[in-house]
């Protein structure tokens, strides 16, 4: 495929400014079975997160007498992309992402409160359009809070980088594929700690610094949306969890 023009008259292909996020909708408590859950719809991404625990650590020899073991699993549904039918289950990419996401959450989850247990964080990408790991981290943080797991902060994440020579935030699939650099960052908004940092492509030191600034600005907005989603659960009686995804409803 030929590289599409990503920036036209200073605006991006979908009409956004360089520092503008796609529309983000966060809904907490969407599953009944899970101890905590959240859906993040971010542009065309739809990522569902569910949390179980603290529960008995299995196998037992993985348990720690000092803290809970945090486990993360990021996977993509076979029907999530516009391209061909994918394979179910994790691949090399999702194993790597699961690991770095777990390490990010190990920083904020107060795991010492639950020795000899495990906390499972499942992230399912139901629809993908660039930036799924950031949407997954943002969803998982809300799901952990919805489960009542003690944490030092709510983590949020956003990708920044460079497209058509300009630093920008929150890349769509095309921008991710044809841009010069992609840099997903997870941030603890309270103290600004960077908990996940990946980067590929080429950036000068100045560009990297400018991109990080942009990530911090965007993260403030995302963290507001996370807070609002959690507060909405307790705005009135707590309802049965119900996922809303489609555009047409039929019911009996």
């Amino acid at each position: 495929m030929e590289k599409p023009q990503l920036i036209i008259d200073g605006k991006r292909a979908d009409g956004r400014a360089l520092d503008e996020l796609r529309p983000i909708k966060i809904t907490a408590h969407v599953l009944n079975g899970a101890d905590g859950s959240a859906l993040v719809e971010w542009g065309n991404n739809k990522v569902l997160a569910g949390v179980y625990g603290p529960r008995e650590c299995i196998p037992r020899h993985d348990a720690s007498p000092y803290r809970a073991v945090v486990r993360c699993r990021y996977t993509m549904a076979p029907f999530c992309s516009l391209e061909e039918h994918g394979r179910s289950g994790p691949n090399r990419r999702s194993h790597e992402l699961s690991k770095v996401i777990r390490e990010a959450f190990e920083n904020v989850v107060i795991s010492e409160a639950y020795p000899r247990t495990q906390i499972d964080v499942y992230m399912e990408v139901l629809q993908s359009d660039g930036g799924t790991r950031c949407a997954a981290i943002t969803a998982a943080a809300v799901a952990l809070a919805d489960a009542g797991i003690p944490m030092k902060d709510l983590v949020c994440a956003v990708a920044v980088g460079k497209i058509d020579g300009l630093v920008a935030v929150d890349f769509s699939k095309d921008e991710d594929n044809y841009g010069e650099s992609d840099m997903p960052i997870a941030i603890a908004p309270r103290n600004g700690d960077v908990l996940l940092f990946q980067m590929d492509g080429n950036l000068t030191r100045e560009e990297l610094s400018a991109a990080m600034e942009m990530a911090y600005k965007a993260s403030a907005k995302i963290s507001e949306l996370q807070a609002a989603a959690l507060k909405a659960v307790y705005d009135g009686p707590k309802k049965e969890a119900h996922l809303v995804l489609g555009d047409k409803f039929n019911s009996q």
């Binding site: 009944n32 139901l126 969890a241 995804l245 489609g246 555009d247 039929n250 019911s251 009996q252």
Partner: peptide
């Protein structure tokens, strides 16, 4: 109560989310 939401995943060629009570299947 059974509810169906079609086109839940627009990237797929077809999709639907079914709620049957508290059971949810996509």
């Amino acid at each position: 109560k059974a509810t169906l939401q079609q086109n839940a995943i627009p990237n797929a060629e077809g999709s639907a989310l079914c709620h049957l009570g508290n059971t949810q299947v996509l």
